[in-house]
Design a protein around this nucleic acid. Structure first.
Length: 892
DNA sequence: GAGCACTGC
């Protein structure tokens, strides 16, 4: 802190010119210290790597010995079976050969010898041969037929009525049963639509559909698959097929050689392909086989999501018949499942972004694949600029950028017109329907559409996209209510919500198979657009809206707003109906609106969020001119300027814009720079344990308190019990410490209406932060009762976020003089302290400060004397007082 | 007296 206080900046109003020399000296000293610190970090990393190598060598040796033993045992077990199999294969082949031989024999015979010149014996022999061939061919046919029949063998022909009977065969248990059911229903409705039974039903539907919505069909989203000819393999079948077979059946397989050649010929390649082509799992394996991992180099592949990185790595390890974590591994936050033997490494884009700090040239990689680039996460967007830069001086590094169809051209342009390699995907066609007129109330329109589908369309599950928890709950109630009124007139409808904050056991219900004769309707947020994939969806209802976060760099305020989705997003949603069979997508907006009102693509994240951490990372990577960094889509200029200004204010940059030692230490933390500053400041105030806990709790975005609709009062009283008079940060500390004292109990969470998942995450974050504190050479000390010290440490990081009470009882931010209000969830909602520090500003119904603590204005002079002047901190009623009086109160 | 879309480090 002290070095920070000595530095003079643009906020310093006096004596600037007098101290140029000492200032320059301080700057040089700081830079020297910074570089020494960086060197120490490097040494630590090397040491860690060496230790890992030692440990993993030992582990590898043990594993190899174990595997050898197992393999020998297996071999003994397997050999007889292998013999039988090869014998069978031989016989099969021999039969084929013999048949062909016979066929050729007859043909030759007929060609060479005319009928009349043959003797009786010869004629009979020919006849015999012909019959033999015919019999053999028929036998083959019969076998074929038998196979088909077995394929359709009914599984459970019990006493139940035939109407409830669904054809499910052994080989086709889980995902595709729904498709068959759907096909069967479609067939039966076509055949039996004149039956009296249906006539009655029709009347009932009229009842349901008195307020139906009229849809018109437009061009379908074309699929590459025909569901009749080419049924997708079920998990069960896949396991039965040889892994090799499966690999060969993937759409990417025929392109293997071309792809390898293209990678050899070009340094950067854009891979354009729909999901389901197998590119993510296969391309790294092809490149490995082609020798790109020779010399101990790795192939890296980034994914936007943790689960994807883990599951893809597991799949590839299985295909390559290696243990996960050895040759094939993955790295995500909190979990590094790789070893020094790893040659194919899957990771999240954020992990690679962070890896740049310790390996800025990616020297250990020969190939880097950025997958799902079209999703344009903050991390992939920054990675584009970084890898493009590296590729210039590392000609041996190959880059593959993999993206969905629309953006490939743009990526190609960015990477100096890199060639585009197209791979076809696998998807069923989806018919798209638009409404004839715009819908006023889309939640209501969703309810009607669901009932309409339920009444008129063949069985198959429905996915509805809504914007948030509240809408989902309203829709759920309304649907349940209307279904109750319809009673037994319609088939069962299972209504299931899914959104990120829903407890996981309730989320997992969406994966349970739909009972026969019933239909499932899933009410989801955007979580179902990319993150969660639900099988058996045949119908999608898309109102065309989503909540989106925007950061306003002028006011420093975030707002979560409902906005129309983009065309890309609408198509992604529609595609969710075509995963297992041909599907239908009902858009609750007009075709005209789609064409003229929706944007082509969603605004990339980098243009919508606060870039404090991203800019700090770039600075730490030695990129000094952040404004001119090679962005695919540059963020707003003001956002970058604000980030730089804040970094300067908190002392991460000096007045030359260079990274300071403090800034270098801050860059080690995967948090907002202000939070990093608060963590570092906790050293001085001897409360690192408490501040680390608070940081971890603030990092799990507001999803700590669970508030089920039927127990709102209980939940709210439970929440109030944690409130701390000092403010919300201390309340969060309370929650965590009480949970810790309960031995991290789930039961405790349940009783106190706390989301266990969130606290567990806070614990993970906390552990990581503790590790990083030690890395930046800070001791962990605890002083739980010194709340003023804890608050001072927070202030040292967040002195940029101060609001003061003005005359009318409302608050104004010091920085922008913006009117703001304490959030009603706050412990200080009913108090009105003179000075407040807020963690974030959000615009919802009003401008709210979320997570606030009370502070004393004199602390601001203590922690940020370069930023605040006594005069600014005088109460508005005191501003006219003589200066001397103001100064006399100064605490130093 | 309000309400947390979704990821990721």
């Amino acid at each position: 802190m002290s070095s920070n206080n000595k530095r003079k900046g643009k906020y310093e109003t006096s004596s600037e010119s007098d101290n140029v020399d000492s200032e320059e000296e301080a700057r040089r000293k700081d830079l020297k210290e910074r570089d020494e610190f960086s060197d120490r970090l490097k040494k630590k990393d090397e040491e860690k790597r060496r230790n890992i190598v030692h440990a993993s060598e030992r582990r590898a040796y043990e594993e190899a010995a174990k595997r050898l033993k197992l393999e020998n045992e297996d071999r003994e077990k397997i050999i007889p079976a292998l013999r039988v199999r090869s014998r069978r294969k031989y016989l099969e082949k021999r039969k084929e050969d013999k048949l062909m031989e016979l066929e050729a024999d007859i043909a030759d015979d007929e060609y060479l010898f005319e009928d009349e010149i043959l003797t009786e014996r010869e004629r009979k022999e020919r006849q015999h041969k012909k019959e033999l061939l015919k019999l053999a061919q028929e036998h083959e046919k019969a076998r074929e037929l038998e196979r088909i029949q077995r394929y359709h063998m009914p599984k459970d022909l019990g006493k139940g009525s035939t109407a409830d009977y669904i054809e499910v065969d052994e080989l086709e248990k889980v995902p595709l049963s729904e498709q068959k059911k759907w096909e069967k229903d479609q067939m039966s409705s076509a055949v039996f639509s004149f039956g009296s039974k249906d006539a009655v039903k029709k009347d009932e539907y009229e009842l349901v559909l008195e307020d139906k919505i009229e849809f018109i069909q437009a061009l379908p989203l074309l699929g590459t698959k025909n569901d009749k000819k080419q049924p997708e393999l079920t998990e069960y079948q896949k396991k039965r097929l040889d892994i090799e077979e499966t690999k060969k059946s993937l759409p990417v397989y025929p392109f293997k050689e071309d792809l390898i050649a293209a990678v050899r010929d070009h340094q950067v390649l854009i891979i354009e392909g729909e999901t389901g082509s197998g590119k993510t799992t296969q391309i790294p394996q092809y490149l490995h086989e082609a020798g790109f991992t020779d010399g101990g180099k790795k192939i890296g592949c980034t994914q936007p999501r943790r689960v994807a990185a883990m599951s893809v790595a597991a799949r590839v390890a299985q295909e390559m018949n290696v243990k996960l974590g050895n040759e094939v591994g993955y790295a995500i936050r909190f979990e590094d499942c790789t070893s020094e033997r790893t040659i194919i490494k899957y990771m999240t884009d954020g992990t690679l972004h962070r890896e740049f700090l310790s390996e800025p040239d990616l020297l250990s990689y020969s190939v880097m694949i950025i997958d799902e680039a079209h999703e344009r996460t903050l991390h992939t967007d920054i990675l584009f600029g970084l890898v493009k830069d590296i590729a210039r001086f590392r000609s041996d590094l190959k880059l593959l950028i993999s993206s969905a169809t629309l953006d490939a051209q743009k990526f190609s342009q960015f990477f100096d017109d890199a060639p585009i390699f197209r791979i076809p995907g696998r998807r069923f066609p989806v018919d798209i329907y638009y409404t004839k007129a715009p819908e006023a109330d889309y939640v209501d329109a969703c309810v009607i559409s669901v009932l309409q589908i339920h009444a008129t369309q063949p069985l198959g599950d429905i996915l509805v996209f809504l914007t948030g928890q509240e809408e989902i709950e309203t829709c759920q109630e309304s649907l349940a209510d209307r279904m109750r009124r319809l009673g037994s007139k319609v088939k069962e409808l299972i209504i299931l919500p899914v959104y990120a904050n829903l407890p996981s056991e309730m989320q997992s219900k969406i994966f349970e198979p739909t009972p026969p004769g019933a239909r499932k309707v899933i009410l989801a947020t955007n979580i179902a657009e990319t993150s969660v994939t639900i099988d058996n969806i045949i119908y999608v209802i898309d109102p065309g809206f989503a909540k989106q976060n925007h950061f306003n760099s002028r006011t420093g305020m975030e707002s979560l707003m409902v906005v129309p989705i983009s065309k890309a997003s609408a198509n992604q949603r529609a595609g969710r109906a075509g995963r297992v069979a041909a599907g239908k997508c009902f858009r609750l907006y007009t075709a005209w609106a789609y064409k003229h009102e929706l944007e082509e693509n969603t605004i990339p994240e980098i243009q919508r969020i606060n870039l404090g951490n991203a800019v700090l990372m770039l600075k730490a990577l030695g990129i000094n001119d952040v404004v001119r960094f090679d962005f695919l889509d540059p963020p707003p200029h003001e956002t970058l300027v604000l980030a730089l200004e804040q970094l300067y204010a908190i002392g991460a940059l000096n007045h030359h814009g260079e990274l300071t030692k403090l800034g270098r230490r801050m860059a080690e933390f995967p948090v907002d720079p202000m939070m990093a500053k608060m963590l570092l400041a906790s050293e001085e105030y001897k409360c690192s344990e408490e501040v680390v806990t608070i940081s971890a709790m603030l990092s799990v975005n507001g999803a700590i308190f669970y508030r089920p609709k039927d127990k709102i009062i209980h939940a709210d009283t439970a929440r109030k019990n944690f409130n701390h008079i000092g403010g919300d940060h201390l309340s969060l500390l309370n929650v965590y410490n009480q949970w810790r004292d309960s031995d991290f109990s789930t039961q405790w969470c349940y009783e106190n209406f706390i989301q266990y998942r969130s606290l567990r995450r806070a614990r993970d974050v906390r552990e990581q932060l503790v590790g990083l504190m030690q890395r930046v050479e800070i001791e962990m000390v605890s002083n739980p009762t010194e709340t003023d010290n804890i608050k001072k440490a927070i202030t040292a990081g967040y002195f940029y976020h101060i609001a003061r009470l003005s005359k009318g009882g409302s608050y104004k931010t010091v920085k922008h003089n913006q009117s703001v209000t304490i959030h009603p969830n706050s412990a200080l909602f009913e108090e009105l302290p003179r000075w407040l520090l807020y963690h974030e500003l959000v615009f919802t119904t009003k401008e709210f400060m979320r997570q606030v603590i009370e502070i004393q204005s004199k602390w601001l002079l203590e922690v940020a004397p370069h930023y605040y002047k006594q005069k600014e901190l005088e109460d508005s009623t005191n501003t006219k007082m003589p200066k001397t009086i103001g100064r006399s109160t100064r605490t130093e």
